[in-house]
Computed example of a mutant assay.
Amino acid sequence: MSSIGYESWAVDLADVGPIYPFQGSEMLMVALGVIFWLGWHRIQFVRESEHLERAKKRALDHEKVQQSVERY
């Protein structure tokens, strides 16, 4: 209970106000969440771009295309 500043719950909770832990650090939590979210999107963008670039190179490999056409 020390994280919210009360030592006893024997009070009228209507007068207490917020009773969740880490009160006052909401902006820090939001900032960390946004930074994590943007970082995750950046990592995904880089990985997917690399994957698509490799797929494009494989699809445009003329020798493999020619071999697959000659088979049929």
Rank of each mutant, 00 (worst) to 15 (best):
P18Y: 01
D12P: 02
V16R: 01
G17L: 04
R71G: 01
Q44A: 10
R47G: 05
R42K: 15
I35H: 06
K56F: 15
H41M: 11
S2P: 05
V11C: 02
S3V: 07
M27L: 08
L60E: 13
H51F: 15
I19R: 03
Q66E: 14
K56R: 15
R58V: 05
Q66K: 14
M27H: 07
G5M: 07
V34D: 08
M27K: 11
G5Y: 01
E50A: 09
A10P: 03
L38G: 04
Y20K: 04
D12N: 14
M29S: 12
V30Y: 05
I19A: 09
A55F: 03
H51R: 09
D61F: 03
S49K: 15
F22D: 06
S3F: 06
I43C: 04
V16H: 03
D12K: 06
R47C: 06
L32Y: 07
D61A: 07
K57P: 03
V46W: 09
I43E: 03
F36A: 15
R71H: 00
M29C: 10
G17P: 02
L28Y: 00
R42D: 09
G39A: 04
S49V: 12
Y6R: 04
Q23I: 08
L60W: 13
W40N: 10
S8C: 09
P21Q: 06
V65M: 06
Q67C: 06
W9M: 09
G33E: 02
P18W: 00
V34T: 13
A59P: 01
G33A: 03
K64A: 00
Q66I: 08
M1I: 09
V30D: 04
Q67T: 08
V11K: 07
R58P: 02
R47A: 05
Q23R: 13
I35L: 14
W37Y: 12
K64V: 00
E70Y: 14
V65P: 00
R58A: 09
E48W: 12
V46C: 04
I35Q: 03
K57F: 06
V69C: 12
W9G: 09
M1T: 12
V69F: 14
D15W: 00
S2C: 09
I43L: 14
L13K: 08
Q23P: 10
L32G: 09
R47P: 00
E50C: 12
V16N: 02
G33M: 03
D61K: 01
Q66F: 12
V30H: 08
G39H: 02
Y72T: 12
V11N: 11
W40V: 12
S68L: 08
S2R: 11
H41Q: 09
L38S: 10
M29E: 01
V69G: 00
I19P: 00
A14E: 01
L28H: 01
P18I: 03
L60P: 01
L52W: 15
Y6D: 03
Y6V: 04
L32R: 10
F22Q: 09
G5K: 02
R54E: 15
E48H: 15
W40Q: 07
S49A: 14
V34S: 03
W40D: 14
E63L: 12
H62R: 15
S2Q: 11
G5S: 10
E53R: 04
Y6M: 02
D12S: 05
L28P: 02
F45W: 15
Q44H: 15
